[in-house]
Amino acid sequence: MIELNGVRKAYKVGDELLMVLHGIDLRIEEGEFVSIMGPSGSGKSTLMHIIGCLDTPSAGEYRLRGTSVGGLSARDLAVLRNRTIGFVFQNFHLLPRITAVRNVELPLLYAGVSRAQRRSRALELLARVGMADRAQHLPTALSGGQKQRVAIARALANDPALILADEPTGALDQRTGLEIIELLRELHSAGRTIVVITHDPTVAAAADRTIYIVDGHIQREEVRRG
């Protein structure tokens, strides 16, 4: 599913080159639930951006489902983000001025799905995350946990193989966070590959395998199940 070989990433800060990732080698198989842990500044966010095709490696190779991402055009990357990856963000990142159901429709819109199909698929997904009765609410009228459920429904819109969650419980209280983790586990049981980036050990522990990143290196990994 995910294959990183010697991935490096450097940013130019002023005149200096800041090395964020120093050669990451990583394999995540189809259907795995993996958490990536590390302190802030460890490079885990940069790694997530590369895995999520929002950024490209400076050196090394990233293969997603066998395709080398480095050689893809901006348009191909957009299609990949649209069809293969579903993002879940810490701050939900719902568009504030459109209703929950319209938020869920967005990836379908960019996939060129017709209006009627978009609506029925979005409502079905909202029902699946327990948000059927909130479809016509604006995000501002939803609680944090409800927003994250809508965001997860949106991530599932095009039935992506990979769910990429960046601190999905970071902005939630403990109980709601656990509910979201439970929702992610359910999706995993249904066969989806889940990668969670977190610095919260409780969240990391929900995954089958945890990869620890420190200073742009993989320090160690811990396998619990699988």
Binding site: L54, A74, A78, V79, R81, N82, H93, L95, Y110
Partner: peptide, 16 residues
């Protein structure tokens, strides 16, 4: 700006 970032992450092309 953030809305644009969100749309790109959801698969909007530059053309879109």
């Amino acid at each position: 700006t953030q809305e644009i970032g969100i749309r790109i992450s959801l698969g909007a092309t530059r053309t879109a």
